[in-house]
Amino acid sequence: MDMLLQVLVSSVLLAAVYFLLSLGLNIILGVLDIVNFAHGAMLIVGAYATYYLYEYTGLSPWLLVFVDMIVVGGLGAILYLGYLQFTVNSPLVRMFALIGFSSVVVSSILVISGSDFRTVHLDYGTVDILGLPVRVSQIVAFGVALILGGATLFLLNYTKVGKAIRAVVDDRVSLWICGVNDKRLSLLAFTVGTALAGAAGGVLATYVTFGPDSGLSFAIIAFAVVILGGLGDLVGGALASLVVALVLTSVTVYWSSALTNTALFILVLLVLLVRPRGILGRGRV
Protein backbone atom coordinates (compact mmCIF):
# COMPACT_ATOMS: atom_id res chain seq x y z
CA MET A 1 0.00 0.00 0.00
CA ASP A 2 2.78 2.30 0.97
CA MET A 3 4.57 1.45 -2.22
CA LEU A 4 1.47 2.00 -4.29
CA LEU A 5 1.13 5.52 -2.92
CA GLN A 6 4.77 6.18 -3.68
CA VAL A 7 4.29 4.96 -7.22
CA LEU A 8 1.30 7.26 -7.62
CA VAL A 9 3.07 10.32 -6.26
CA SER A 10 6.14 9.67 -8.33
CA SER A 11 4.02 9.13 -11.45
CA VAL A 12 2.03 12.30 -11.03
CA LEU A 13 5.21 14.34 -10.66
CA LEU A 14 6.74 12.69 -13.67
CA ALA A 15 3.58 13.07 -15.72
CA ALA A 16 3.80 16.84 -15.57
CA VAL A 17 7.31 16.75 -16.95
CA TYR A 18 6.36 14.23 -19.61
CA PHE A 19 3.48 16.49 -20.60
CA LEU A 20 5.90 19.38 -20.95
CA LEU A 21 8.23 17.13 -22.96
CA SER A 22 5.45 16.30 -25.39
CA LEU A 23 3.85 19.74 -25.73
CA GLY A 24 6.20 21.20 -28.31
CA LEU A 25 6.24 18.02 -30.34
CA ASN A 26 2.45 17.92 -30.30
CA ILE A 27 1.97 21.51 -31.41
CA ILE A 28 4.41 21.22 -34.30
CA LEU A 29 2.78 17.98 -35.34
CA GLY A 30 -0.72 19.35 -35.00
CA VAL A 31 -0.23 22.68 -36.72
CA LEU A 32 2.42 21.94 -39.29
CA ASP A 33 2.07 18.24 -39.93
CA ILE A 34 5.77 18.06 -39.18
CA VAL A 35 6.96 15.16 -37.08
CA ASN A 36 9.76 16.93 -35.31
CA PHE A 37 12.53 14.39 -35.32
CA ALA A 38 14.79 17.08 -33.93
CA HIS A 39 12.71 17.23 -30.75
CA GLY A 40 15.30 15.32 -28.73
CA ALA A 41 18.05 17.60 -29.96
CA MET A 42 15.99 20.67 -29.03
CA LEU A 43 15.43 19.25 -25.55
CA ILE A 44 19.10 18.75 -25.07
CA VAL A 45 20.01 22.21 -26.37
CA GLY A 46 17.65 23.57 -23.71
CA ALA A 47 19.33 21.44 -21.07
CA TYR A 48 22.81 22.61 -22.09
CA ALA A 49 21.65 26.22 -22.26
CA THR A 50 20.48 25.97 -18.66
CA TYR A 51 23.70 24.24 -17.65
CA TYR A 52 26.01 26.87 -19.11
CA LEU A 53 23.89 29.87 -18.21
CA TYR A 54 23.66 28.58 -14.66
CA GLU A 55 27.42 28.03 -14.54
CA TYR A 56 28.23 31.49 -15.82
CA THR A 57 25.44 33.67 -14.49
CA GLY A 58 24.32 31.76 -11.41
CA LEU A 59 20.74 32.80 -12.16
CA SER A 60 17.97 30.59 -10.88
CA PRO A 61 17.51 27.62 -13.20
CA TRP A 62 13.79 28.26 -13.00
CA LEU A 63 14.32 31.69 -14.47
CA LEU A 64 16.62 30.14 -17.04
CA VAL A 65 13.79 27.92 -18.26
CA PHE A 66 12.38 31.04 -19.87
CA VAL A 67 15.75 31.98 -21.31
CA ASP A 68 15.93 28.46 -22.76
CA MET A 69 12.63 29.13 -24.46
CA ILE A 70 14.13 32.16 -26.18
CA VAL A 71 17.34 30.34 -27.10
CA VAL A 72 15.75 27.17 -28.44
CA GLY A 73 12.72 28.96 -29.88
CA GLY A 74 15.15 31.23 -31.70
CA LEU A 75 17.02 28.22 -33.00
CA GLY A 76 13.71 26.76 -34.14
CA ALA A 77 12.72 29.99 -35.88
CA ILE A 78 16.05 30.12 -37.69
CA LEU A 79 15.70 26.49 -38.70
CA TYR A 80 12.20 27.09 -40.02
CA LEU A 81 12.89 30.39 -41.77
CA GLY A 82 16.27 29.47 -43.12
CA TYR A 83 15.66 25.89 -44.11
CA LEU A 84 12.45 24.01 -43.40
CA GLN A 85 10.06 26.31 -45.21
CA PHE A 86 12.03 25.79 -48.39
CA THR A 87 11.85 22.01 -48.25
CA VAL A 88 9.14 20.15 -50.11
CA ASN A 89 6.06 19.71 -47.97
CA SER A 90 6.56 15.97 -47.68
CA PRO A 91 6.67 14.20 -44.33
CA LEU A 92 9.46 11.92 -45.50
CA VAL A 93 11.66 14.73 -46.74
CA ARG A 94 11.14 16.65 -43.54
CA MET A 95 11.72 13.59 -41.42
CA PHE A 96 15.14 13.10 -42.94
CA ALA A 97 15.88 16.82 -42.87
CA LEU A 98 15.12 16.96 -39.17
CA ILE A 99 17.04 13.79 -38.37
CA GLY A 100 19.97 15.38 -40.18
CA PHE A 101 19.58 18.64 -38.29
CA SER A 102 19.41 16.71 -35.07
CA SER A 103 22.68 14.92 -35.81
CA VAL A 104 24.32 18.24 -36.58
CA VAL A 105 23.14 19.67 -33.26
CA VAL A 106 24.23 16.64 -31.24
CA SER A 107 27.66 16.47 -32.81
CA SER A 108 28.10 20.22 -32.40
CA ILE A 109 27.38 19.84 -28.70
CA LEU A 110 29.91 17.04 -28.61
CA VAL A 111 32.53 19.28 -30.19
CA ILE A 112 31.73 22.28 -28.02
CA SER A 113 31.07 20.59 -24.73
CA GLY A 114 32.54 17.11 -25.03
CA SER A 115 30.85 13.89 -24.07
CA ASP A 116 30.90 14.67 -20.36
CA PHE A 117 27.67 14.29 -18.49
CA ARG A 118 26.26 17.47 -17.04
CA THR A 119 23.84 18.25 -14.33
CA VAL A 120 22.62 21.29 -12.48
CA HIS A 121 22.74 20.47 -8.82
CA LEU A 122 19.96 22.13 -6.92
CA ASP A 123 19.93 21.40 -3.28
CA TYR A 124 16.59 22.53 -2.04
CA GLY A 125 16.14 19.46 0.11
CA THR A 126 13.16 17.16 0.09
CA VAL A 127 9.65 17.19 1.40
CA ASP A 128 7.48 14.24 2.24
CA ILE A 129 4.42 13.70 0.06
CA LEU A 130 2.26 10.76 1.09
CA GLY A 131 5.27 8.83 2.30
CA LEU A 132 7.55 9.58 -0.62
CA PRO A 133 10.40 12.00 -0.02
CA VAL A 134 10.32 14.26 -3.05
CA ARG A 135 13.01 16.68 -4.08
CA VAL A 136 11.73 20.23 -3.84
CA SER A 137 13.20 20.96 -7.25
CA GLN A 138 11.04 18.19 -8.64
CA ILE A 139 7.97 19.88 -7.25
CA VAL A 140 9.07 23.15 -8.80
CA ALA A 141 9.60 21.29 -12.08
CA PHE A 142 6.08 19.98 -11.71
CA GLY A 143 4.88 23.54 -11.19
CA VAL A 144 6.79 24.91 -14.16
CA ALA A 145 5.43 22.12 -16.34
CA LEU A 146 1.90 22.89 -15.21
CA ILE A 147 2.33 26.62 -15.76
CA LEU A 148 3.76 26.22 -19.24
CA GLY A 149 1.24 23.52 -20.15
CA GLY A 150 -1.56 25.71 -18.88
CA ALA A 151 -0.19 28.75 -20.66
CA THR A 152 -0.04 26.83 -23.91
CA LEU A 153 -3.58 25.58 -23.56
CA PHE A 154 -4.69 29.11 -22.73
CA LEU A 155 -2.84 30.49 -25.74
CA LEU A 156 -4.47 28.01 -28.08
CA ASN A 157 -7.97 28.19 -26.66
CA TYR A 158 -8.45 31.74 -25.53
CA THR A 159 -6.38 34.04 -27.70
CA LYS A 160 -6.99 35.17 -31.24
CA VAL A 161 -3.60 33.99 -32.43
CA GLY A 162 -4.08 30.64 -30.70
CA LYS A 163 -7.44 30.16 -32.33
CA ALA A 164 -5.89 30.98 -35.68
CA ILE A 165 -3.19 28.38 -35.00
CA ARG A 166 -5.87 25.79 -34.33
CA ALA A 167 -7.62 26.94 -37.49
CA VAL A 168 -4.46 26.17 -39.46
CA VAL A 169 -4.82 22.58 -38.29
CA ASP A 170 -8.50 22.53 -39.23
CA ASP A 171 -8.44 24.12 -42.65
CA ARG A 172 -5.60 26.07 -44.07
CA VAL A 173 -7.46 27.22 -47.17
CA SER A 174 -10.34 28.62 -45.15
CA LEU A 175 -7.84 30.57 -43.17
CA TRP A 176 -6.46 32.13 -46.34
CA ILE A 177 -9.88 33.33 -47.36
CA CYS A 178 -10.24 34.86 -43.92
CA GLY A 179 -7.27 37.00 -44.92
CA VAL A 180 -4.86 35.27 -42.55
CA ASN A 181 -1.33 34.46 -43.63
CA ASP A 182 -0.69 30.90 -42.54
CA LYS A 183 3.04 31.13 -43.13
CA ARG A 184 3.49 33.48 -40.24
CA LEU A 185 1.31 31.29 -38.06
CA SER A 186 3.34 28.25 -39.06
CA LEU A 187 6.53 30.03 -38.14
CA LEU A 188 4.96 31.05 -34.87
CA ALA A 189 3.79 27.53 -34.12
CA PHE A 190 7.20 26.08 -34.92
CA THR A 191 8.87 28.67 -32.75
CA VAL A 192 6.47 28.09 -29.87
CA GLY A 193 6.86 24.34 -30.26
CA THR A 194 10.63 24.45 -30.18
CA ALA A 195 10.60 27.00 -27.37
CA LEU A 196 8.54 24.57 -25.32
CA ALA A 197 11.05 21.84 -26.11
CA GLY A 198 13.73 24.20 -24.82
CA ALA A 199 11.76 24.78 -21.64
CA ALA A 200 11.33 21.05 -21.18
CA GLY A 201 15.07 20.62 -21.63
CA GLY A 202 15.71 23.29 -19.04
CA VAL A 203 13.45 21.52 -16.56
CA LEU A 204 15.18 18.20 -17.30
CA ALA A 205 18.56 19.77 -16.64
CA THR A 206 17.56 20.43 -13.05
CA TYR A 207 17.03 16.85 -12.11
CA VAL A 208 18.64 14.44 -14.52
CA THR A 209 22.21 13.93 -15.62
CA PHE A 210 22.54 14.39 -19.34
CA GLY A 211 25.03 14.14 -22.17
CA PRO A 212 24.84 15.08 -25.86
CA ASP A 213 22.92 11.89 -26.68
CA SER A 214 20.45 12.02 -23.83
CA GLY A 215 17.71 13.73 -25.81
CA LEU A 216 16.72 10.46 -27.41
CA SER A 217 15.35 8.70 -24.33
CA PHE A 218 13.19 11.70 -23.55
CA ALA A 219 12.09 12.21 -27.14
CA ILE A 220 10.84 8.62 -27.12
CA ILE A 221 8.69 9.36 -24.11
CA ALA A 222 7.41 12.50 -25.82
CA PHE A 223 6.51 10.54 -28.95
CA ALA A 224 4.73 7.90 -26.90
CA VAL A 225 2.74 10.58 -25.10
CA VAL A 226 1.74 12.25 -28.37
CA ILE A 227 0.62 8.98 -29.93
CA LEU A 228 -1.28 7.86 -26.83
CA GLY A 229 -2.92 11.22 -26.40
CA GLY A 230 -3.86 11.54 -30.04
CA LEU A 231 -1.89 13.56 -32.57
CA GLY A 232 -2.51 17.24 -31.95
CA ASP A 233 -4.73 16.67 -28.91
CA LEU A 234 -3.13 18.52 -26.03
CA VAL A 235 -5.67 17.53 -23.40
CA GLY A 236 -5.36 13.93 -24.50
CA GLY A 237 -1.63 14.44 -24.20
CA ALA A 238 -2.00 15.50 -20.58
CA LEU A 239 -3.91 12.33 -19.82
CA ALA A 240 -1.46 10.24 -21.82
CA SER A 241 1.43 11.70 -19.83
CA LEU A 242 -0.09 10.31 -16.69
CA VAL A 243 -0.63 6.93 -18.32
CA VAL A 244 2.95 6.80 -19.59
CA ALA A 245 4.34 7.84 -16.21
CA LEU A 246 2.24 5.24 -14.43
CA VAL A 247 3.24 2.51 -16.86
CA LEU A 248 6.94 3.31 -16.71
CA THR A 249 6.97 3.62 -12.93
CA SER A 250 4.88 0.58 -12.13
CA VAL A 251 6.67 -1.64 -14.63
CA THR A 252 9.91 -0.69 -12.91
CA VAL A 253 8.62 -1.14 -9.41
CA TYR A 254 6.47 -4.22 -9.84
CA TRP A 255 8.19 -5.95 -12.68
CA SER A 256 11.57 -5.13 -14.15
CA SER A 257 13.20 -1.88 -15.09
CA ALA A 258 14.71 -3.55 -18.14
CA LEU A 259 11.22 -3.91 -19.57
CA THR A 260 10.01 -0.32 -19.31
CA ASN A 261 10.64 0.53 -22.95
CA THR A 262 9.18 -2.75 -24.09
CA ALA A 263 6.02 -2.07 -22.12
CA LEU A 264 5.85 1.43 -23.54
CA PHE A 265 6.17 0.21 -27.11
CA ILE A 266 3.54 -2.47 -26.62
CA LEU A 267 1.20 0.16 -25.23
CA VAL A 268 1.87 2.43 -28.20
CA LEU A 269 1.29 -0.39 -30.67
CA LEU A 270 -1.98 -1.34 -28.98
CA VAL A 271 -3.23 2.22 -28.94
CA LEU A 272 -2.37 2.69 -32.61
CA LEU A 273 -4.41 -0.39 -33.37
CA VAL A 274 -7.39 0.15 -31.10
CA ARG A 275 -7.56 3.88 -30.62
CA PRO A 276 -5.59 5.47 -33.45
CA ARG A 277 -7.07 8.84 -32.51
CA GLY A 278 -5.64 8.59 -29.01
CA ILE A 279 -7.10 8.06 -25.58
CA LEU A 280 -9.81 10.66 -25.99
CA GLY A 281 -10.38 9.77 -29.62
CA ARG A 282 -9.92 13.35 -30.68
CA GLY A 283 -6.52 13.20 -32.32
CA ARG A 284 -5.88 13.16 -36.03
CA VAL A 285 -5.17 10.12 -38.10
Binding site: P91, L92, V173, L216, N261
Partner: peptide, 29 residues
Protein backbone atom coordinates in the same frame (compact mmCIF):
# COMPACT_ATOMS: atom_id res chain seq x y z
CA UNK B 1 -0.64 21.42 -54.41
CA UNK B 2 -0.90 22.31 -50.80
CA UNK B 3 -4.23 20.64 -50.45
CA UNK B 4 -3.12 17.36 -51.81
CA UNK B 5 0.19 17.10 -50.07
CA UNK B 6 -1.56 18.11 -46.97
CA UNK B 7 -3.90 15.19 -47.13
CA UNK B 8 -1.20 12.68 -47.77
CA UNK B 9 0.78 14.20 -44.94
CA UNK B 10 -2.09 13.64 -42.59
CA UNK B 11 -2.47 10.06 -43.58
CA UNK B 12 1.21 9.55 -43.15
CA UNK B 13 1.47 11.10 -39.72
CA UNK B 14 0.80 8.19 -37.39
CA UNK B 15 2.97 5.96 -39.52
CA UNK B 16 5.75 8.49 -39.48
CA UNK B 17 5.41 8.91 -35.77
CA UNK B 18 5.59 5.18 -35.23
CA UNK B 19 8.52 4.77 -37.58
CA UNK B 20 10.24 7.54 -35.73
CA UNK B 21 9.55 5.96 -32.41
CA UNK B 22 10.89 2.63 -33.57
CA UNK B 23 13.98 4.16 -35.15
CA UNK B 24 14.65 6.08 -31.99
CA UNK B 25 14.03 3.03 -29.88
CA UNK B 26 16.43 0.99 -31.89
CA UNK B 27 18.98 3.75 -31.85
CA UNK B 28 18.64 3.95 -28.11
CA UNK B 29 19.12 0.24 -27.69
Amino acid sequence: LRDRKYNSARQFLPIAALIGLLIMGMALL
